[in-house]
Each structure stands twice: as C-alpha cells, then as structure tokens.
Design a protein around this nucleic acid. Structure first.
Lengths: 194, 194
DNA sequence: TTGTGAGTATACCGACCGGTATGTTTACCT
DNA sequence: AGGTAAACATACCGGTCGGTATACTCACAA
C-alpha cells in the first residue's frame, strides 16, 4: 500500500468522491442516484463512469474513504496514550468526539451492510474488514493489558463501542460513548487488566 | 389498544404482510418493490394499496410486526425468570436464541433506520420506540436489582445487547450474545446488583 | 335477491434508475 | 506543434419504481 499503489485522483474524481461520501452517508446509498452525485459534483455522469466504472465501485471507494477518515481520527487519539488501558479509554474518547462531529447518522459500515443486501456486493467486505479491525484492536489492547480471557474482553469492549453508536443514533443517548467508556473500564478491572 | 382497536386482517392482507416482512427484512426495504410483494403474496398491487394505502404504511406495519414477534419471544424468556438479575440473563438468552433463529440479517429496526433516511418517515418512530423500550427494560431491571447508578448500568447493558447483534451480524461472532451476557453479569456485580 | 366487501386481471401513468454513445472542448506535457 | 488525458454536453437505452384506473368475479349476509 505505498503511495505508488494509490493513483492520485483527478480533481473531478476527488469532488465526485467527496460528494458521494456526503450523500451516501446522509441519505443512504440506494436513495442517491448517480445523476444527483454528478450534479452536486459539477460533473457529468460520463466523467463519473470514466473514473469509477460503476456505482458499485464508487460505493466501495466511499466506504474505504469513510474508514480511512475514522482510522486517521482514531490514530490521533491513540498517539496520545501509551499504556493499553489508557489506549482503550482513548479509543472511546475518539468515538465520543467522532460521533459528535462526523457521525449524525450512525455507523456508515453498519448502514451500508443494511442497505447492500446482495451478498456479492463488494461493499460488504469493506464493512466486514472495518469491524474485524475494530475487534482486533480491542482484543490486542486487552491482551497487552494482561487481562485474563482477552478475547472475550476484547469482544465485550467492541460490543460496547458498537452499541454506543446505536444508542446515540437511534435512541438519542447523548453521553453514550462516555457511559460505554466507564463500562469498558469497569470490565477491564474485572478482567484484571493493568 | 384493546382488541377493538386492531381490526382483523383479511386473508390476503395477512399474506401480504407476511411476505413483506420476510422480503423487507432479508433484502432491504428500498430494494424490494411493491410488484414483487404482490407477486409473492399471490395478490395484485391493487389489493395491497386497498388494504395498506401506501408502501410507507406497509413498511410501518412490517416494523410493528417484527417488533411484536421479538416482544413475544422475549416475554417467553422473561416469564421463566423472577429475580432482576436472572431476568437480565434471560434477556440475553432470548437474544441468543433469537439471533440464531430469526435474525440472520441483524436488527430490523437498525437496518430500517439506515434505509429510511427521510426524517419524516413514520417507520423511524417505530424503530425509536423499540430501542427506547429496550433501554427502559434494562434500566428498570438495573433499578430493581438495587444497582448504584441504574441508569448508567441499564444503558451499558443495552449497549452490550445492541453491540452483540452487530458483532454477530457483521463480524460473524457466533457466541456474541453469550459473551455479552457474561460481560453484563460482570457489570451488574460491579454495580452492586443483587 | 340484492347489495357489499374482497379480491382478480390488465393496462397504464410519469418519474427515475444505472449505464452507454457520440462528439466537443480545454489544458498541460513533450 | 502535436498528442493525450480530462472533462465537457447531450441524448439515449431498457427497465423499474410507487401508484392509479377500469372493469370483472365471487362469497356471503340482510
């Protein structure tokens, strides 16, 4: 994944992806037509299909872009913490701020998973990878913290994380991430994490 | 909401709702057209629009039916447990069996919330009510268990519940509900629940 | 027996969907 | 100066969408 592997986007393609990211997230993938994307990006459909090939591939790019933004956001928070337990706390803080700033419609991956019911749609794999990555992160932190049964603890932390997103999005629980963080901390204590 | 308020459905309407429930859940609401619903129910579109008025209202009925099925399932499990803590465990057991039997595509409410991006769509309120009900259930059980900060504990339990659904659906964690149940039990201990 | 509600069959509406075709213009690189 | 990639504009394709209109059959109940 060096820079040579990722071809630089043309200015129009960038605009298309930015617009699609916004529209797909806020209105849903199936609700947004390519014509609207083209119009909002100040581009013709021709250009989109020349650059992205199909809506399916544009959707994949959208999901990758969302994931990359979240990873970037998260890494900034992880960079400030060192001990495993502090890093778990930092992850929930990252989630809290993320939800406040960029997540008014819940998790883009979960939403896409709901919309893309076709098992063959490549967008599903992107969502699966993202969730697998989050699960691995928590499992890794649980293990590094010296917890007993780190796999189970990691899964529980990931569930609190995911559940907080739903709670905030659907139920409107404003302090969901902070509640999840406190519960996560308690669970780490129970599991004897350092 | 007495029985006089719920008009009995005509046989064709029942078939339509059953078919729509299955199709909307497994393929997604926006992906399924009314023509397909009509065909699978052995009914003309005319009949559907005579009985349900619009797709929007059929969707609302679908969500209510799913919720009713889940409530029925849950009540069967709650009926067997008495103490608050045992009832929490029973709820997670209900979830475990529910996911194994009727939930291959995750939570219908969360999925619908993702698909129905229009804030005016009445289906959103059904999903919100369902999640609010679940939150209230856990908060009530936490309070009855004599936990300190029952609101926070209840929210945490609800998040584990919701997170388990996502973990199982997207990440494929088969024992998600059991892991969530164990974490929930540990949290109850931490909060001094009886 | 006569009306009424339920359902059928078929045809249609305008709007939009994802995707393609043809051809033109702009701008930068060698 | 010439070539090439990028973006333009426009018009079109077959198909599906939610929803409506018309006219018919059937069963049952007053």
């Amino acid at each position: 994944m060096t820079s040579s592997g990722t071809r630089p986007m043309t200015p129009a393609a960038r605009r298309v992806l930015d617009v699609a990211t916004e529209l797909f997230y806020t209105r849903g993938i199936n609700t947004v037509g390519m014509e609207l994307v083209a119009e909002r990006a100040g581009v013709t459909k021709k250009t989109i299909y020349d650059r992205f090939g199909s809506k399916q591939q544009l959707v994949v790019q959208y999901l990758r872009a969302r994931d990359a933004r979240w990873r970037e956001h998260l890494d900034a928070y992880l960079g400030r913490a060192d001990a495993p337990r502090a890093r778990v706390a930092a992850t929930f803080e990252a989630l809290d701020d993320w939800m406040g700033a960029e997540n008014p419609r819940g998790c883009a991956m979960v939403n896409a998973y709901a919309e893309l019911s076709d098992p063959e749609h490549p967008g599903r794999a992107v969502a699966e990878d993202q969730k697998r990555g989050l699960r691995d992160l928590y499992a890794d932190l649980a293990a590094r913290a010296g917890a007993d049964d780190p796999a189970a603890l990691g899964d529980a932390l990931a569930m609190l994380h995911e559940g907080a997103v739903v709670a905030r999005n659907v139920t409107g629980v404003a302090d969901a991430a902070r509640t999840a963080r406190a519960a996560a901390d308690a669970l780490m204590t129970v599991h004897g994490a350092a």
